[in-house]
Amino acid sequence: MEHTAVAEHHEGGKKEVIRVTIILTVLTIIELALGFAMMGMENQRLRLAIKGAIVILMLSKAFYIVGYFMHLKHEVKNLIMTIVVPLFIFFWFIFSFLYDGNSFKNLKNTYDPYKKELSTTKAEKKEEAKEIKTDEKKKAVD
């Protein structure tokens, strides 16, 4: 019985690989195009929307890799469930941790004026960077 299941799969196997490769390539190109479009964009809302679109594209790429390349879509439902269900904890994980990070930022900005000042004054770190760079070069020469 197992043999026929495998044999059935071989028929469309190569075609499926080509199809998924094309899908992954197209999704990556769209991601990159969005990344290029986002460069130098001032509108913060639009930036956020594009970032959301990139995350959705990322998740669909993950779906195609796990589902087709790793073959999970063709496994028994039991196996799919035992792998996928535990990963749902990431929903809570991402939401609450990012929320917490944001709240921490707001608290710092409200109650730590020094930090706030530090993060709003323009720095001139470029010089220092160059110094480190020349230091490295000196070290390399030495």
């Binding site: 196996l79 990070g101 921490f104 930022k105 993060s119």
Partner: peptide, 30 residues
Amino acid sequence: LMMWYFLMSDAFTFGAFLIAYGTTRFATNG
């Protein structure tokens, strides 16, 4: 099956790293 379970645990490791990164980024002004 064990490879799948290993990869799931590895996914949690990477997930924890990336969420730590995201949290720090959300907690930083610039």
